[in-house]
Amino acid sequence: MLTHFQYKPLYEHADIPGWRFSFYYMKQRYSGIYHPEGRIEWTSGFPEAKSILEAQIHDLMLFHVYDK
């Protein structure tokens, strides 16, 4: 389970989609960029459970960004 999920706009101008995100998983910090088409670009190493965590990140982004 990932914890301390945070996101912020990738660009200063909030009308341009794209977000930086970070979270902790098994006491390790991970970060990346969530692109508007749903592609995840890892800016830190990616976790072993990458596919499971990517599904959780998609769900969180849908909830926090798109379901406002």
Rank of each mutant, 00 (worst) to 15 (best):
F5H: 06
I40K: 00
Y34K: 05
W42V: 10
K8Q: 14
K27T: 08
K50T: 12
R20V: 01
A49K: 11
K50W: 03
S44I: 05
W19K: 09
W42N: 08
P36F: 05
H64N: 12
S22C: 10
F23A: 01
L2V: 13
E37R: 12
S51R: 14
I52W: 04
A14S: 10
L62P: 00
R29M: 13
Y66A: 04
A55D: 12
W19A: 06
H4N: 15
H13T: 08
E48V: 14
Y66Q: 06
A55F: 06
T43D: 06
E12Q: 08
W42Q: 10
H4L: 13
V65A: 00
P9C: 07
K8E: 13
F63K: 15
P47E: 02
Y34S: 05
D59F: 07
H58W: 07
W42Y: 11
F63Y: 11
M26K: 14
E37A: 06
Q56K: 15
E37V: 07
L62V: 06
P17S: 04
G45V: 02
Y66L: 14
I16V: 11
I33V: 14
I16K: 12
T43Y: 03
L2K: 05
I52E: 12
R20Y: 12
H13W: 08
R20C: 02
E54S: 04
L2N: 01
I57W: 00
M1H: 11
H58I: 03
Y7E: 03
K50M: 08
H13I: 10
A55T: 14
D67P: 00
S22I: 01
K27R: 11
R39E: 13
E54W: 06
F46I: 04
R39I: 09
P17F: 03
Y66D: 00
Y11N: 08
P47D: 01
S22D: 15
I33S: 00
